[in-house]
């Protein structure tokens, strides 16, 4: 029997997540290298329609476990289903997404299968020995390492979302197979009581993935509106911040102050508008993964830290940027 690479699809509220297609794409590439096949496993309740949606994206088989117990994600129910499928299919490699649920789920799966797990990988390949070669960043990305799982099977890895391309729809048909798995109530100790949408799009600065921040260059409280709009354009998980001098000038409330004496933040993207970048401010945001700075003063210290700096009037740049981001987001 050909070696199988099993990828776990991720869906939420009846929609497939993009990571599912990213996994399929890389799964297919890996399968080609080991001369095997790729299959995708869909877990949930009443997922027939979603299974069909997966058709044509390169998976040889679309496996579905359909159970009311899988209606909501819990690590116990999902792990149970996956492990049962693995016991039937004996895949060589098991791939999942390093998403909120993936990061939660796979440690249990790996431990139950007594195998290794390379988590949050940014690149996946096959080693000369035919093993899964998973590259993952460690020390917050300061170093990369290769992880291999030489003996235990399946080799499990989770892939960081948005780093690899997604599979495109092709002509090859996939075979849909339903696998019955019995999940008993006694298998489930932890129960999801409810999901809560935190108020509005804005979340706490320290937890935001995108922060748009304004400094004294904002010139007034009203002008912070354009930062709100830019933040909104990025969607959920965004927040608006301010430098100490903006707060001191009364443009913004103290609870959104970023810096040594305010909040220390670590978003994926930090957009500094009209912030010169005193050390007090830098101390609070310098570990941001990507920093964009807009400032009129080409000598502003913030430019030394910025990945991308624009020497221009922020009032011209920010509204244009908002429009462009909205356009791209609309396409996605």
């Amino acid at each position: 029997m050909a070696k199988e690479i099993l990828v776990i699809a991720e869906q939420k509220d009846g929609r497939l997540k993009k990571i599912s297609f990213e996994l399929l794409c890389i799964g297919k590439k890996l399968a080609d290298k080991i001369g095997g096949t790729v299959s995708i496993l869909l877990l949930g309740y009443q997922v027939d329609k979603l299974a069909e949606e997966l058709d044509g994206y390169g998976a040889q088989k679309i496996l579905a476990v359909d159970s009311e117990a899988l209606k909501n994600y819990t690590n116990e129910s999902y792990a149970k289903a996956i492990v049962e499928v693995v016991k039937i299919r004996h895949p060589e490699i098991l791939l999942g997404g390093a998403t909120a649920s993936g990061k939660d789920l796979f440690p249990r799966v790996a431990a139950r299968l007594q195998t290794g797990l390379a988590s949050d990988c940014t690149s996946l390949d096959i080693s000369p020995e035919g093993l899964l070669l998973a590259q993952r960043p460690i020390f917050a990305g300061k170093i990369l390492v290769d992880a291999i799982i030489p003996e235990a099977r399946p080799q499990i890895a989770t892939l960081r979302p948005n780093v690899l391309p997604a599979a495109e729809k092709g002509s090859q048909k996939s075979e849909i197979e339903k696998i019955p798995v019995e999940i008993k109530p006694m298998d489930l100790k932890a129960i999801l009581k409810e999901t809560v949408k935190t108020a509005g799009e804005r979340i706490d600065l320290t937890e935001a993935s995108v922060i748009v921040s304004g400094g004294r260059g904002m010139a007034s409280q009203e002008n912070f509106k354009i930062l709100e709009e830019l933040a909104s354009a990025f969607g959920e998980g965004t927040a608006v911040g301010a430098s100490r001098s903006a707060v001191d000038s009364g443009f913004a409330p103290h609870d959104i102050q970023v810096g040594q004496t305010g909040k220390v933040v670590n978003p994926n993207l930090y957009i500094a508008c009209g912030i010169s970048g005193s050390i007090q401010h830098l101390a609070g945001m310098r570990t941001s993964k990507y920093i964009v700075a807009v400032n009129k003063d080409p000598e502003a210290p913030i430019f030394q830290l910025a990945d991308c700096g624009i020497v221009a009037d922020l009032f011209k740049i920010v509204p244009l940027l908002t429009e462009e981001v909205k356009k791209i987001k609309a396409q996605q």
Partner: peptide, 24 residues
């Protein structure tokens, strides 16, 4: 251990910040 780690390497160097000038 089930998983072995090897080949520690530095990520591609983060490019020096780019300064964009020009029309908005």
């Amino acid at each position: 251990s089930k998983m072995k780690t090897k080949n520690f390497q530095l990520p591609p160097e983060r490019k020096a910040g780019k300064k964009i000038e020009g029309e908005p």
